[in-house]
Amino acid sequence: MMSGLSDARRNLRERSEKHLRLAVLSELGRDQPSTVEPYKAKGGRLWSTLFVPVYRRVPWAAKEKAMGALGMTASGWKAPERKPGEPWRPPADMADRVQHGTPPARDDSAS
């Protein structure tokens, strides 16, 4: 069973994504050939008039922190190693992993 908190997180994500996306679709598509206005269902006025403008004013770094605090980002995963200007190096234990490596792919799977 989903907990109340999980439900709330999922709901928040669904609704916020929907309205942020709708606003951007209208803006980006406005001057582009061959596009039309997206269909806009009734309702969601509070999201489009309050949430979207407020969200946009918040700097990205603060949004990232807020998403982390609200549990909207993944746990149990390593953040990607991405330091510009430095060459990528394999993890220290890569040799062990290779020893227990996977067999080559065979052409026998569904795709």
């Binding site: 996306r21 209208s26 980006l28 050939p33 061959s34 596009t35 039309v36």
Partner: peptide, 21 residues
Amino acid sequence: DEGPWVLHEILDPDVAKPVHD
């Protein structure tokens, strides 16, 4: 589709015209 161009969830609108054409 309800969207303003095809594949609007992954594609940017500056690519809409050649795809629609």
